[in-house]
């Protein structure tokens, strides 16, 4: 019995590692597909972009050549690449030379986590609750009106909705600050002043993210619950005379399980959305740094962001799979 759980876990872990390896190989290969010396190409793009001073460019070039391992055989480049990764060394940023990529990411990542994770959990809970409610009243006016509205909300582009929210509540009504993460000059810490100021800045992006994502969860939960309500075991429970609310509870339980898996699959999508949203709100997280890396073509930084986000997506999916294995008896005991 426990052997099964172990086998399931082992499979998930192997799958996660394989997926990560796949991305590592991809990110290693891509720049090296550029004909000629990739470092030359990547740095020259930087030169075209920003009129940096020649000495700096030279230093950057040398550092980059060394980290890239230009001239070494490909397999040696790869082992170096992996060894650096294992040490947590993601290279040196070009646009913020000589700061290390890992240092920069450590500065920005926590803010994104603080925004994204609560927003995902809250929208998941609210959306599922709403979905069951609509499924319960399926076919009624409530369903016919709310469902198309939710479908529409589900299609509003994150970043545009963010712009509209910012315009209405910050620019026009002035309920919230017009962006940024916390007031300039405050230093992050666990003191009253900072926390209140942070939450004031946090509220609008958080609500935007929650409102937008709730629609999708509710729609998914509605159709899952309706599907389960039409299943054979609900019919049997109904025929046994069990009350309507009990049937709904059974359907809800079964419908929740796939929603747990969806949580993992949707994480990536929401992550992408929240990066864009951060841009609009000037929220200092991974979104801002991604945009900066892209607009300066800071390749080591882009690569670092990519690796960290890929690892996050894979790790979240692994955790979700493990949780799923624990809550679904069909996996737990066979």
């Amino acid at each position: 019995m426990y052997l099964n759980v172990l086998r399931y876990l082992a499979r998930r872990v192997v799958f996660a590692l394989a997926a990560f390896l796949f991305f590592i190989v991809a990110i290693f290969t891509l720049p090296r597909l550029i004909p000629g010396n990739p470092v030359d190409v990547l740095v020259s793009r930087l030169v075209m972009q920003a009129q940096a001073n020649p000495e700096l460019i030279h230093a950057v070039h040398r550092k980059f050549m060394e980290e890239f391992g230009v001239g070494l055989p490909l397999w040696k480049q790869f082992t170096r690449f992996v060894a650096q990764l294992l040490r947590g060394d993601l290279g040196t940023s070009i646009s913020m030379y000589p700061r290390k990529v890992s240092e920069i990411l450590a500065l920005f990542l926590p803010w994104t986590v603080a925004l994204l994770i609560p927003a995902i959990l809250v929208s998941w809970a609210v959306g599922n609750f709403l979905g069951v409610l609509i499924a319960w009243r399926r076919g009624t006016v409530l369903d016919r009106v709310i469902t198309p509205i939710l479908l529409t909300i589900n299609r509003i582009p994150f970043y545009w909705f963010a712009m509209v929210m910012l315009f209405i509540f910050a620019v026009y009504l002035r309920f919230f600050p017009i962006g940024d993460t916390y007031r300039w000059g405050l230093s992050p810490g666990l003191n009253w002043n900072f926390v209140v100021n942070y939450l004031h800045h946090y509220a609008l992006p958080f609500l935007t993210l929650v409102v937008i994502s709730t629609g999708g969860w509710a729609i998914g939960m509605r159709s899952m619950t309706i599907y389960e309500l039409g299943s054979d075991y609900i019919l049997f429970a109904d025929l046994l005379g069990l009350p309507q609310r009990r049937l709904l509870a059974y359907a809800f339980r079964s419908a929740c399980l796939p929603q747990v898996t969806e949580l993992g699959l949707n994480f990536g999508l929401m992550l992408g959305g929240s990066l864009l949203l951060e841009l609009v709100f000037n929220y200092r997280g991974m979104g801002s740094i991604t945009f900066q890396a892209l607009s300066t073509l800071d390749y080591p930084l882009i690569q670092g962001i990519f690796i960290v986000l890929a690892a996050a997506v894979i790790a979240v999916n692994l955790v979700v799979d493990i949780v799923y294995g624990l809550v679904d008896p069909r996996i737990k005991v066979t």
Binding site: L33, I34, G268, L294, I302, L309, N317
Partner: peptide, 24 residues
């Protein structure tokens, strides 16, 4: 299905990012 899940779980925007960097 394994490869489908990889592509599915991965934020499309990130994947696209990576490629677009190399396609100016």
């Amino acid at each position: 299905m394994a490869s489908t899940n990889i592509v599915l779980a991965f934020p499309p925007i990130l994947l696209l990012l990576l490629v677009t960097v190399f396609v100016p």
